[in-house]
């Protein structure tokens, strides 16, 4: 599970850095800079949301594991 989270985070990072690289060049009408840069805000909030959901899933799995242990013990 931890590897999976790391992988998704790394994937997302490379996704965003691929946009960042173009900033060295002359400023063109690239996607993340259009519409008053609102897409940047959308990306940031989406990232937080996805991270939060993944975190909730890890807690869920942990509780499930504890419940399983308990059932074996009883």
């Amino acid at each position: 599970m931890k590897k999976l989270i790391l992988l998704t985070l790394m994937g997302l990072m490379s996704f965003f850095s691929s946009f960042a690289q173009s900033s060295n060049q002359v400023e063109m009408a690239d996607f993340l800079r259009s519409s008053g840069k609102i897409y940047v805000v959308v990306s940031v909030i989406s990232l937080i949301l996805v991270g939060f959901i993944v975190y909730l899933f890890t807690i869920d799995r942990k509780v499930s594991r504890l419940e399983k242990q308990r059932r074996n013990k009883l």
Partner: peptide, 21 residues
């Protein structure tokens, strides 16, 4: 049994993207 959790996550993500754009 967790499909509704995934559904909730997708709906929230949709509401953020569509809500801003």
């Amino acid at each position: 049994q967790n499909w509704w959790k995934v559904l909730g996550a997708i709906l929230l993500l949709y509401s953020v993207v569509a809500g801003f754009l």
